[in-house]
Simulated scan of single mutants.
Amino acid sequence: MNTRESIGLNLRRLRVERGLSQERLALASGIDRSYVGRIERGSENVTVEALEALTTVLGVPVRQLFDEPTDAAPARLPSGRRRK
């Protein structure tokens, strides 16, 4: 597994653990939602600035995204809007 894939899996795991959609994470961090998706798929060379913005919202240090993932990709969040 390459570094981009590790970052993507860790980002997705952290996002799902916190119950955030890609869209909510993107809005909170000031990043385009499609960019977040490409990062999670490991198809984007992510910038340090973007990593800092994402980890600030997630409340973790940047280095945590570089850890070797120990499990498979996390389950998806339920689709659809949350009820108010």
Rank of each mutant, 00 (worst) to 15 (best):
M1E: 08
N2L: 12
N2Y: 05
T3N: 09
R4A: 14
R4H: 10
I7M: 07
I7A: 07
G8R: 08
L9M: 13
L11K: 02
R13W: 12
L14A: 13
R15M: 09
R15V: 07
R15S: 07
V16Y: 10
E17P: 04
E17H: 04
R18S: 09
G19C: 09
G19F: 04
L20R: 11
L20I: 05
S21N: 05
Q22T: 03
Q22K: 07
R24C: 04
R24W: 01
R24M: 09
L25I: 03
L25H: 05
L25M: 06
A26C: 07
L27R: 15
S29V: 00
S29G: 04
G30S: 09
G30I: 12
I31T: 15
I31Y: 00
I31K: 01
D32F: 00
R33T: 06
S34D: 02
S34K: 04
S34W: 00
G37I: 01
G37E: 02
G37S: 15
I39C: 03
I39Q: 01
E40S: 10
E40V: 06
R41P: 01
G42R: 11
G42N: 08
G42Y: 11
E44G: 00
N45A: 14
N45P: 06
V46I: 14
V46R: 02
V46Q: 07
T47R: 05
V48L: 15
V48N: 08
V48Y: 10
E49G: 04
E49T: 14
A50R: 00
E52K: 11
A53D: 06
L54R: 01
T55H: 00
T56F: 02
T56H: 09
T56I: 01
V57R: 02
L58R: 04
L58P: 04
G59K: 09
G59T: 05
G59F: 08
V60K: 08
V62D: 04
V62H: 03
V62I: 13
V62M: 06
R63K: 08
R63H: 07
Q64V: 12
Q64F: 08
F66C: 11
D67F: 14
E68K: 12
E68H: 11
P69N: 08
T70Y: 00
T70P: 00
D71H: 14
A72P: 03
A73M: 10
A73H: 10
A73S: 14
P74V: 15
P74I: 13
A75F: 03
A75K: 14
A75N: 11
R76P: 03
R76H: 10
P78S: 05
P78R: 01
G80T: 02
R81C: 07
R82T: 13
R83L: 14
R83W: 13
K84F: 08
K84D: 13
K84R: 15
